[in-house]
Structures are given as structure tokens and as C-alpha cells.
Design a protein around this nucleic acid. Structure first.
Lengths: 312, 312
DNA sequence: TCAAAAGTGTTATCCTTACACCCATGT
DNA sequence: ACATGGGTGTAAGGATAACACTTTTGA
């Protein structure tokens, strides 16, 4: 049974809103941070706010002067250990994922691969995985007692990081972070002011509290979402070339995609239409500019079949 | 720069846990209710709980004596109008979706189609749609001012309910409920002690507060989830026939699926294995009993491809 | 002329969809 | 025998994955 050291007075619970705000800033999938990159923007949920979502919009636009495009709720966290050290105050954090194309007020945007260096596979698997993570994870697995635990631990590692013949799955961002956390390979686990030179190179930049976990949740959600909902366009300028679109997807997914098959996919789903304009800013042959067909949002909010339905 | 000082509004906010607990009770997709079907089980989040999820597990098992299988967070609601009438107390409801196969303590299980009669298309489109909902929705759309609003409203209706040539999409449970709410076709909107004889037949059984909205959220999530994650098995007995499995899926989706193609799908994904036992309880030729291959949970947590990746 | 990016053609393969038919049991 | 569900074969069509090649610009 739980150890009740903290007395539960009425009203001991505070509610925070916390935002994972994403933009693609010259080729880098970026997240808006505060405190010099140590934290995600957050603030108390005010009673005056009409709803959570509007509450979030209000203060994000206040703080950042960014019009906030697509917004969705991510997750609500409330583990006991989230409380600030010393205080027995219980904090509930309701996190949101937001997408924007605006990048004014140049402050605070950071590539999310600063925080998760092992997640960027656009130039092949990052060396940090084989060099640093794998040996340490293997040590951790082997230290797992006597029973079947070591194999079980290693199986999880291999699956999450695409080892031993398993394929890399870019959606497992959270699982990977949690494994590293469990294996104490991440500064947040030991809480030492976060971000020593060596630790950062290996395990990425740390953040306050569990902000990095929340960021991982957001990235995972977004990587999953781009596959079945046309949300990338929220991150694009109004007009863009197909390669720019492809680069944006690649930035988010952390993987390269096949050029022509990508184009065919976009085309056959009728996601874009030509603007009639071409640009030669891209180096090489001038490219046609496209715009997103907003009609598709109305037409199909994604069928989402996968069940072999009988004909009606 | 924004600072993350979490100011606690002393005691103005209460936090509730609320559960959408699903089981398939002889062919009906059912939800656990309390208060004679008027409410979903819920309770205050206690500071003693280690985390939200364990908090939920503890009191669900307390209240229902059900071992709770799969659990996932659904959504966190906090609209102002959620507060109890008169009180200015702000309530935040963190909702969870839980799946179980246990049905002991026969109290409180209700078919979710009692609450959403228009969602069950297993015997074709329910007559209530054409008979009652469509005319009223059309009226509501037409009453939408002078501008483009009426067409816009009707377009949303047609899309949500599969009218005017649009296909029925079983995942749009929440959108449909919210349309009916917006059109004031649902007792919750008018708040008249909920559930008059006529209203219930047309717009389904009402619930307290926004519990029905939460239930709709849960159903939508589950209908989406069964397509890419093997969660149906959480609702099955340890051994089952393929037709029983199919019936369970159909109950959840509210649609019939193609027998052979369904089997092929199950088989080629290696989701099940034969137990070696057959049963003749099903009427007709005895059926092989299968069990879920728990190995798949480890093997692939669903690849989830849809991007044309380049070969590594 | 060469680098860099734009843009197109084509094929093998797999998955999905839609057919229609036979098998084993209890009544 | 017949109703009820169990269980199978197979072919058409479309989506995917994998090939390599031509075109147009700026430096």
C-alpha cells in the first residue's frame, strides 16, 4: 500500500499546462523552449480560461507571439516524483502538441535532435548508438539479477533500438527514452543539474523535471500522425516545392524517404495542387510550387480502414 | 522570457478520475456504469495514489472487483460548464479507457448502443438515422442564418453520418455526438434530468454531466485502435473460436466484416494459434479453439509503415 | 561542362477485395 | 434432410517497393 507521508489537504493539487510546440526551422525539426533550452514552455492553468485548449492558446500566443495552428492534447502526467524537490505539492501537467509555421521571435527554437541525438537516422544510424548506448545498455541488461531478467531487458533494448536484426522503428521515441532512463543513462535519472559535457554528447541535452519525457511523447505522436493525417502542411509555408515537403517529413521522421514513391503518394492522395508558380531558389532546375488542398480536410478525415468490411 | 513558476490557485481545482471500462457481454459491447446507468464510474484523484494509472486501477478494482487488463489514458476534460450547477468549483476529469474480460458482479454493464443507438450498423443503418436524426439535422442546418452556414452545417452532418453518398465511418463517434449536441438533439444540452421516454428512443440514453461525451471518446478510440493494435484479445476469454473473435470485433466496430478475409488477416499476422481443442458449443460443425499469441506483443508493436522509406 | 535538384517510366510483388463453394455436426 | 456455423480456393485490381534515367537551371 502507498506510503502516505504527504497529507492530502483539499486543494493541494495544482494544474499546469505544458506545450510541445513544433516548427521546422531551416531543415531542423524544432521545439520551442524556455530557460535557455532547459524547459518546455508551461504555465498554470487559470480558472479564467474557458477550456484547456483555449487556455493554452492564450498564453502561448502571449508568450511567443506565434499564431498557433494545429493543437492536440498529448497526455496528462501526475506521477508523485514530478513535484518540485522538497515541496509536497502535487502537480498535474496537461501537455499539448502544437504545430506552427511561424518562426518570428527567434528565441528558443532548438532542434529536437539536440535532446535525442540517437533519433536522427537521416544519415544512417547515428554512431552514438553503437559507440555508447549499446555497450551501456548491454551492461545494464546483464546486471539484471540472475533469472530471465537479463534476456528480457536485452530483448527490449534490441527491439527499441533496432538491434539484432530488428528494424529501426522511428515511432518508439518514448520507449527508447524510458529504457535509457531505466538504465540510468540519462541525467534526469540522477538529477545532477542536468547537462554535463560528456553526458550531453551521449545521452542528449537534459531538461527540467520530466520535460524531456513529455517532448519524447510529442515527437512519437507526431511521427505516428504524419502517416495517416496530413499534418505536415501545418509546418510548411503556404507554397512549397515537393522536395521541401519531403525534407520536412524526413526531418520529423528522422529517416529518408524514397523520392518518387513519396511523390506518387502525395499525388494520388490529391493532397496538393500546383500554384502555377515556379521558383529557382532551390539550386538546380526550377521547381514547381504547390499548395495544400484544404479541401481534403473536409473530404476525408482519413478513412482508416484495416478491417475487411462486408459490402453494404 | 517566460518563467515556469507554477503558482497554485489554492484549492480552486479538483481532479477526478473517470473510467470507460469495456467488456463484451454476450455479444454486446458494454460499458460499466453506476447510478443505474446514468454515470460512468469516477472518483477523486487522491494524493496518496502513486500515479494516475495506479490510482485508477486501485479504485476500479475496489469498486468492481475486476482485474483491469489493458488501460490507457483517454483525454483530460476541463471545460467550465463541466462544473456542478451553482458551484464555481472547477473540475478536471482525467478519463481512462480500460478493457476487461471479467464480468463478475453482474451490476452495471450496459450495451453502449443504449447510449448511441445510431452507432450500431451490424444490421444495416439503424432506422433512427433516416427516420429521426436526418430530418432534425436538416432543420438545424437550415436554421443556420443566412450565409454559407447552412451548407457548411449540412456538409458536416453528411460527412459524419455517411449521407449524400459519403461512406459510413464508424470512427466518428465523437463527431456525431457533438453534432447532435450542437443541434440540441440530445438531452444533455438542455439538461432536463436526462432521459425522457421519447428523447431516449431517438437520441439514446443520456448521462450525467459530460459522461456521454467521454464514453463517445472511448468508443471512438477503441474503434480506431482495434485496427492497428491487437487489443480485442483483452476482451476475449483465453480460448475462443474465430467466429467469436469476429463477432467481438463486429460488436465493437458496429459493422459486419468479411468472414474469410478477416480470417486471412488474423492468420497472416500470426495473431493466434490453435489450442488443439475443439468445441461443439457453437451449434453447427465443431470449431477449433484458438488462443492469442502473446509473443506478438513482443515481436512487433506494429510497424506502422506508410512512408515510402528508402532502403537502409 | 558539371553539380544539383526536378521530374518521369516501368516492373515485380504483395495486399486487399470480392467472388462461391464444400465440410462436419446436432436436431 | 437440413439448418447452422466451420472452413477453404482463387482471381482481379490496386497499392508498394524497387529499379534507373532524362531534364533544366546556375555557377
Amino acid at each position: 500500500m502507498p506510503e502516505t507521508t504527504t497529507v492530502s489537504l483539499a486543494g493541494a493539487i495544482a494544474v499546469d499546462l505544458i506545450a510541445v510546440l513544433v516548427a521546422v526551422v531551416n531543415g531542423s525539426p524544432s521545439v520551442l523552449t524556455v530557460q535557455n533550452g532547459d524547459a518546455l514552455p508551461s504555465g498554470p492553468f487559470e480558472d479564467a480560461h474557458r477550456s484547456l485548449q483555449t487556455g493554452l492558446r492564450i498564453w502561448v500566443e502571449e508568450q511567443t507571439h506565434h499564431p498557433l495552428g494545429y493543437v492536440e492534447q498529448l497526455y496528462t502526467f501526475a506521477d508523485r516524483d514530478r513535484s518540485a524537490a522538497g515541496s509536497s505539492q502535487r502537480v498535474i501537467s496537461i501537455s499539448y502538441l502544437g504545430l506552427t509555421r511561424e518562426t518570428r521571435g527567434e528565441v528558443g527554437w532548438r532542434s529536437w535532435y539536440d535532446y535525442f541525438p540517437w533519433e536522427d537516422h537521416r544519415d544512417g544510424p547515428p554512431v552514438v548508438i553503437a559507440e555508447h548506448l549499446v555497450p551501456r545498455l548491454r551492461d545494464w541488461a546483464q546486471a539484471g539479477g540472475t533469472a530471465a531478467l537479463p534476456e528480457e531487458r536485452w530483448r527490449r533494448c534490441a527491439f527499441a533500438f533496432g538491434l539484432d536484426g530488428a528494424a529501426w522503428n522511428e515511432e518508439l521515441v518514448l520507449q527508447r527514452y524510458e529504457l535509457l532512463y531505466e538504465a540510468a543513462l540519462v541525467p534526469e535519472r540522477v538529477r545532477e543539474t542536468g547537462g554535463q559535457s560528456d553526458a550531453t554528447r551521449i545521452s542528449g541535452r537534459a531538461m527540467t523535471g520530466d520535460h524531456r519525457r513529455i517532448l519524447a511523447t510529442g515527437i512519437a505522436r507526431l511521427r505516428a500522425k504524419i502517416k495517416y493525417r496530413p499534418v505536415v502542411f501545418e509546418l510548411m509555408q503556404p507554397a512549397f516545392t515537393l522536395l521541401q515537403l519531403q525534407r520536412a517529413v524526413e526531418a520529423l521522421a528522422g529517416r529518408l524517404v524514397h523520392k518518387q514513391n513519396f511523390r506518387r503518394l502525395i499525388e494520388q492522395q490529391e493532397l496538393v495542387e500546383e500554384t502555377g508558380v515556379t521558383t529557382s531558389d532551390t539550386g538546380g532546375r526550377p521547381a514547381k510550387l504547390f499548395r495544400f488542398r484544404h479541401a481534403v480536410l473536409a473530404e476525408r478525415a482519413a478513412a482508416g480502414t484495416k478491417l475487411p468490411l462486408t459490402r453494404a
